[in-house]
């Protein structure tokens, strides 16, 4: 399977280790992965700020970079959701093709590759942060508001990791308060939301907070580090790929 690896702008520049883990994990699973070098961003920062009309050339560039793959996979639920919902291009047929072929890493592993076991080892207590875009946008897990059967794709994968213990939360899918530019424009509320999420994880003994979305984790990491917490953040790809480092 030919996979186009989409590494969102902030992951590329700030969290290369998560991107490397994603690449390695997909390769371990036998995928033919390439990283189109001219990629930049999905355009979400502009669009969520009300400037979707400025994203056209960014979108066209995206279409140019990611046409022709069997699947496009990215370690970021939020960016994937944005592409699924809002990618339109000069070549609309190609844009539509991409919208149906793009997957967030977790759902690619559970829904396309349907993996049932993983050679991964991560002997730590881990709290799962459901990113809102992953949860309510991509339906990576059941949403607490709905009356519907429970499931969780991230949990299913983490349960395959040896030594890993998933910790509880009082509020299983509350937003962390990142929200793109919200984290700056509404600094006070954003930080308060982040502090409360982090406290919920700490209270239940998490050593790591993991998520399919690094933007949420980046925000919580900022709060954890400022408050000299021992709790660390880690992208789910790094846990799922942990065998190569830990063993």
């Amino acid at each position: 399977m030919k996979i186009g690896l989409f590494i969102p702008c902030y992951v590329n520049q700030l969290y290369p280790s998560a991107a490397i883990a994603t690449l390695e994990l997909l390769q371990k699973l036998g995928m033919d992965v390439s990283y189109p070098a001219k990629q930049t961003c999905c355009g979400q920062p502009m669009a969520n700020s009300g400037y979707e009309h400025l994203t056209q050339s960014c979108n066209d560039l995206f279409v140019e970079n990611f046409s022709g793959f069997d699947y496009i996979v990215a370690p970021s639920a939020s960016c994937v959701l944005h592409v699924k919902d809002h990618l339109h291009g000069n070549d609309e047929a190609a844009a539509k093709e991409i919208r149906t072929r793009i997957y967030e890493l977790v759902e690619f592993l559970t829904d396309v590759l349907k993996i049932e076991n993983l050679d991964a080892h991560f002997p730590h207590k881990v709290g799962i942060h459901q990113s809102c875009h992953g949860l309510r946008g991509l339906h990576l897990a059941q949403m607490s508001e709905l009356v519907a059967p429970d499931f969780s794709k991230p949990r299913k994968l983490l349960n395959m990791v040896k030594g890993l213990e998933i910790t509880d939360l009082d509020r299983v899918d509350e937003c962390c308060g990142f929200g793109g530019l919200f984290c700056i424009a509404e600094e006070a509320v954003s930080v308060k939301m982040g502090k409360d999420r982090v406290a919920d994880h700490s209270k239940h003994g998490a050593e790591y907070i993991t998520s399919p979305d690094l933007s949420c984790l980046m925000h919580m990491e900022g709060i954890l580090q400022r408050n000299k917490s021992n709790v660390k953040i880690i992208h789910i790809a790094e846990i799922l790929n942990s065998s190569s480092k830990s063993l």
């Binding site: 590494i7 992951v11 590329n12 520049q13 700030l14 969290y15 290369p16 280790s17 991107a19 490397i20 690449l23 390439s34 990283y35 070098a37 984290c183 700056i184 424009a185 600094e187 930080v191 982040g194 980046m218 925000h219 990491e221 900022g222 709060i223 580090q225 400022r226």
Partner: peptide, 24 residues
Amino acid sequence: PWYKQRDMPDSPKQSFGEWYAKNG
């Protein structure tokens, strides 16, 4: 506003794109 109550993310030595150019 980010830094007021949050630390900045660490700036890694190289981006993924730069790493990929060397290792991929």
